[in-house]
Design a protein around this nucleic acid. Sequence first.
DNA 1: TATTTTTTTTAGATTTACCTAAAAATTTAA
DNA 2: TTAAATTTTTAGGTAAATCTAAAAAAAATA
Lengths: 220, 220
Amino acid sequence: MQSFTEENYLKIIYHLAENTNNVQTNAIAEQMQTKPASVTDMIKKLADKGFIDYVKYQGVTMTEKGRNAAIDIVRKHRLWEVFLVDKLNFKWDEVHDVAEELEHIKSTALIERLDEFLGFPKSDPHGDPIPDKNGRFAKTQFTKLIELKIGDSGTITGVSQHSSAFLKHLEKLGLTLGKQIQINDVTDFDGSVEILILDKQINISREVAKHILISSNGKN
Amino acid sequence: MQSFTEENYLKIIYHLAENTNNVQTNAIAEQMQTKPASVTDMIKKLADKGFIDYVKYQGVTMTEKGRNAAIDIVRKHRLWEVFLVDKLNFKWDEVHDVAEELEHIKSTALIERLDEFLGFPKSDPHGDPIPDKNGRFAKTQFTKLIELKIGDSGTITGVSQHSSAFLKHLEKLGLTLGKQIQINDVTDFDGSVEILILDKQINISREVAKHILISSNGKN
DNA sequence: TATTTTTTTTAGATTTACCTAAAAATTTAA
DNA sequence: TTAAATTTTTAGGTAAATCTAAAAAAAATA
Ligand SMILES: [Mn+2]
Ligand SMILES: [Mn+2]
Ligand SMILES: [Mn+2]
Ligand SMILES: [Mn+2]
């Protein structure tokens, strides 16, 4: 059984490993909000315990054991987020920090019964997939809204930024999960995007468009 | 905000203070499953932070601040136990250890919404009162079953021992919360108690009888 | 009251997860 | 392909929560 800190490292390394082969010390330090020297200490420990493979100066990769441990934490995090939204009426921008704490509660029975209580949900309030108890989940194919061309349309199915500020902003714009959108225009001046949602045209910045994930229903 | 460890000390000191004026170092050590030397270190820290009053060699007493902090943790612990039993179908002997972890989750919003979700329960699965959000709760007047006389009757409304082994044993004997019982006889030989429950006569040991709490409906 | 026993505290270490500053390795650029 | 910049590691230290062994205080007993 791992400490809270070890679990947080594992989860962060797992997420970083989704985008790169060798996860770098500095990247981990940034995510953990700590110093590279501290990361070096910790990755040595995690390597000793067999959660990651580590070659000095070459960064780390996850072992099967590490990946399983990380997926288990991700599963807990996302199930708790569903609980908070579905049962306790939290908003999608209010759940992340509490789930960061709840994900460390150690009880297999608890999480399996919670899963059942929630009706075995397949995705969390931000559209992220929830691994089942064997760690399996559908790797959904998202396109970033920013990458769509004029005329393309699709459904909002996820976000790649979970900060409360960002999610509240989306909420205000009406850009919530399941909404249909269409790209009307892209402004030359600042790259901002004109989108059509429920027959209403709105303008969103590039920064916002980068973090909205679309399951496209056919390119233009 | 306190650390997990500080919260555990506060809760334990609070419970010990229910039975004695000055809580002793050794008593805390026993409950915390740690050594007296460690307790001395910690009570100095808690005293510095204003949670307890501490006079060297004289033991500790809780301050108002300490009591409030402790009651808040007790409230969380008991609400989570209700959640586990009422919503996730845990048995009353399975919830304590998980609640020991859940009680440390820091979110006022979470606990208030949980309270509401559960219908503002007044007592937990073991019959212990749940403080409201202002820390108020009814100090119920219990009698230990062992103290009743032959012919006395009453309702089981609590237990003073939360171990899984004890609670499973009670369950097997049918001695659960809300059950009506009557004292039929007390055996001279070993002090065991014959009780009548649902027209069935059973025999329970002194040790068991000590930890069953009865709200008596009239002495003999 | 003097002695023994018990309780509590102090002194000095250990472990975990951090830190800063400096050295070493790697990568990028000239 | 050398020099500069960046990344990573090491060395040495700190704070929290623990420990053991020994000293000090308080309580119980003779
Ligand atoms: Mn989250
Ligand atoms: Mn999420
Ligand atoms: Mn409990
Ligand atoms: Mn309880």
